[in-house]
Design a protein around this nucleic acid. Structure first.
Length: 463
RNA sequence: GACCCUAUCGUCUAGAGGCCUAGGACAAUACCCUUUCACGGUAUGAACCGGGGUUCGAAUCCCCGUGGGGUCGCCA
């Protein structure tokens, strides 16, 4: 049997980090076993689903490189099928009409809560042999409820959490079709997983309580029950639940913030899953190693610092050309065109092992392509008379030396000897003049990359 | 409140009864490297939630407590 997994987000918002990890694990499981990964959009909540959200999810998946083999399937396009199954269940007696209004249900819930009971439907419209049902009220459109078994337990061997057992007595007859005939989530999922031949349902922890209901429906339908695996949630950096207000940002925000997709993927893979001491690995390795046995069953706290470290790591090993392309885009957004200045790839090479993200890289690159304006205080503090004199000597030598690192370095050393100064005494003021800041990579490398004309021009502004 | 899940350094985790004086990584601290700042290297500190069992032996198994989380919709 080939493994078939699915990722089934509802398009009520962007793809956030928790959803991305769920998708990653479901994707990896299918890849690991040579199976298929299916994308399904659960858009039956018409009021909250938007096409923008669908696009945002697709964009997120695409950025991460989590390609699906089938779909995307849209539940709204499967309405006839759901209605067909509901009709079958009604005919078979595994579902029934219920005329209780929302208001009545609210009252029932309140009363149960006040009584410290678990709020649940009381089965008043559930047909039983020899039971007299209430009179059908006029003008009320009924909902359809699933006739859940009364006794026994529903048990499954969860891929992450192990054996879970829930008594049917805890479950009530949930609604599978609304008064307007629209099917509900717990029902659509079941029909879809069945029709799409899903063998392994890998989803968030918050669905554990839906699982017994879904299993019961599957069984009522005579369908094969898939294997379930429930991933525990991801907490925010501060250990509290992720919310729109903090942490639950779109994966595209990570792109915006200068993270590389492979860093995010590697980080996510390692959050809640492990392969011994492995920390840094490719997606190929991940797919090869991935298994349910090594998924942690408790919630994990997101740690931005570790993500930053991974991102810095991937930045260091990324190709200069790729990084130059990324940086150019970010510079362009700031209205900076690196075309006419120092060769971008060379500058990138100087900085890529010194930054944690692409925005920092762009920050570092910027002074190479704009007129830098160190503050008057900075100039006053660094450009003392002896330094100024030394820079003049240096300027003379630089104007005539061969323009490559070794020669530039030699010119520097000669200047130091001539002026009886130490390296930092000249290099730091020079950095301020050239780049507007006292720190930079090795000064000879910076000079080489910046180019003789530019170096002399920048120097002349202050000498 | 009921039901379900869960608990190892600050954080992510290794750990499937003896290999554990509990390992790795991020972060922290110190030192080294150095042409500044980084990078890098080396080193240090840092944890088995509590209580009972089971066993010759428990971080690992069981029970209770406590903490954390999830769910109880004509949302998904």
């Amino acid at each position: 049997m080939t493994i078939r997994t699915r990722f089934a987000p509802s398009p009520t918002g962007y793809l956030h980090i928790g959803g991305a990890r769920t998708a990653l694990f479901a994707w990896a499981y299918a890849r690991r076993h040579g199976g298929k990964f299916i994308l399904r959009i659960e858009d039956t909540d018409v009021a909250r689903s938007t096409p923008e959200a669908v696009q945002a999810i697709l964009d997120g998946m695409n950025w991460l490189g989590l390609a699906h083999d089938e779909g995307p399937f849209y539940q709204m396009q499967r309405m006839p099928r759901y209605k067909e199954v509901i009709a079958q269940m009604l005919a078979a007696g595994t579902a029934y009409h219920c005329y209780t209004s929302s208001e009545e249900l609210d009252h029932l819930r309140e009363a149960q809560m006040a009584n410290k009971e678990k709020p649940r439907y009381d089965g008043r419209w559930r047909p039983e042999p020899g039971k007299a049902l209430p009179a059908v009220p006029a003008g009320v459109a009924p909902v359809v409820r699933f006739r859940n078994p009364l006794d026994g337990v529903v048990a499954w061997d969860d891929g992450v959490k192990g054996c879970i057992e829930i008594a049917n007595a805890e479950l009530d007859d949930f609604i599978i079709a609304r008064a307007d005939g629209a099917p509900t989530y717990n029902f659509c999922v079941v029909v879809d997983d069945w029709d799409m031949g899903i063998t392994n349902v890998i989803r968030g922890d918050d669905h554990v309580n839906n699982t017994p209901r879904q299993i019961n429906v599957l069984q009522a339908l005579g369908a094969q029950v898939p294997q379930y695996a429930h991933l525990s949630m991801i907490l925010g950096d501060d250990g509290t639940k992720l919310s729109k207000r903090h942490g639950a940002v779109s994966v595209m925000q990570y792109d915006e913030d200068g993270y590389l997709p492979e860093a995010v993927l590697n980080y996510l893979a390692r959050l809640g899953w492990s392969h011994g001491d492995e920390e840094v690995f490719t997606m190929e390795q991940f797919v090869q190693w991935f298994d349910l046995d090594h998924i942690t069953s408790s919630a994990a706290q997101f740690n931005t610092e570790k993500l930053n470290w991974l991102n810095a790591h991937y930045l260091k090993s990324a190709a200069d050309t790729r990084l130059a392309g990324e940086a150019a885009q970010r510079l362009a957004r700031r209205g900076i065109d690196p075309e006419a200045g120092a060769p971008l790839e060379k500058v990138v090479a100087l900085y890529k092992d010194r930054v944690t993200n692409l925005n920092e890289l762009a920050d570092a690159l910027e002074p190479f392509y704009v007129v830098v304006q160190p503050s008057a205080e900075m100039i006053a503090a660094h450009l003392t008379e002896p330094v100024r004199a030394a820079l003049k000597v240096l300027r003379d030598r630089l104007s005539s030396c061969i323009w490559e690192k070794a020669a530039i370095s030699a010119a520097f050393k000669e200047t130091l000897t001539a002026c009886a100064l130490k390296m930092p005494q000249v290099a730091i003021p020079l950095r301020v003049v050239l780049l507007g800041q006292p720190q930079s990579p090795a000064i000879d490398a910076v000079l080489e990359v910046l180019g003789r004309d530019e170096v002399l021009a920048r120097l002349d502004r202050y000498l």
